[in-house]
């Protein structure tokens, strides 16, 4: 007999349930989890190397590294002395909740202030998958073009922080910081924008201040 079953279920409900489990784990450990997203090559790992080194005395931080292949990035991050766990998605374009649950088991969460989750380089798919993070942080480099927030609205609409990286290259490219920030704010009026250069270190202090403040808020101090 032919039958129609009304379902009305969110297709990604399984991932959303795992994200809730992760949110609970992060809350129990009073840990600020940040989901770091960008295109490939925008400077996510460079940002982490800088941040982990410069704030080594201030915050206790660990990193989950998502990549299609290789553990190059985990090695770069581990060289700063921070705990680092590599996830290889074997071609998968994003991280999901089940991968983070596995990775979290390998990290000593006790006493940690910040957990960075470096997503796979991709401006599309990662925005769809909740990882239980407190905030999404998106990185856009000036060599990519200032129209990216307009072209990839979901990622920028969902992010709390936007870092505009490689500002040391501004003299060589047609990129307007105002335009990029304007597009991002039009999508998301609360987004906080930091123009930075992870190569020279310019502009990183306001990002560090935001990070320390977010940790204090998280820990209720």
């Amino acid at each position: 007999m032919s039958k129609t079953i009304p379902v009305i279920r969110n297709i990604l409900e399984a991932n959303d349930r795992l994200a809730e489990q992760l949110r609970t784990i992060f809350a129990e450990n009073r840990l600020l989890a940040l989901n770091l997203m960008s295109s490939p090559g925008a400077g996510k790992t460079a940002l982490l190397e800088r941040t982990l080194t410069d704030l080594r005395e201030t915050l206790r931080m660990a990193v989950i590294e998502g990549d299609l292949q290789t553990n190059n990035d985990a090695l770069r991050v581990a060289a700063t002395g921070a705990q680092a766990v590599q996830i290889n998605t074997e071609g998968g374009c994003h991280l999901d909740g089940s991968m983070i649950l596995e990775a979290v088991k390998q990290i000593d969460l006790a006493g940690l202030d910040v957990l960075f989750i470096e997503n796979v380089g991709n401006l599309v798919c990662p925005a769809e998958f909740d990882l239980g993070e407190a905030a999404k942080v998106t990185l856009l480099s000036v060599t990519e073009g200032d129209d990216k927030p307009e072209k990839y609205p979901l990622m920028f609409a969902e992010s709390r922080v936007l870092l505009l990286n490689k500002i040391d290259l501004l003299p060589y490219v047609d990129f307007s910081l105002e335009k990029a920030a304007g597009f991002a704010r039009a999508l998301n009026p609360e987004i906080i924008v930091f123009p930075v250069s992870c190569r020279t270190g310019e502009g990183l202090q306001p990002w560090y201040d935001w990070l320390c403040e977010a940790v204090r808020t998280r820990q209720g101090a």
Partner: peptide, 12 residues
């Protein structure tokens, strides 16, 4: 932002 299943049609 939806991504939902609304119904399934099949045979018993």
């Amino acid at each position: 932002k939806e991504l939902n299943i609304e119904y399934i049609k099949g045979d018993t």
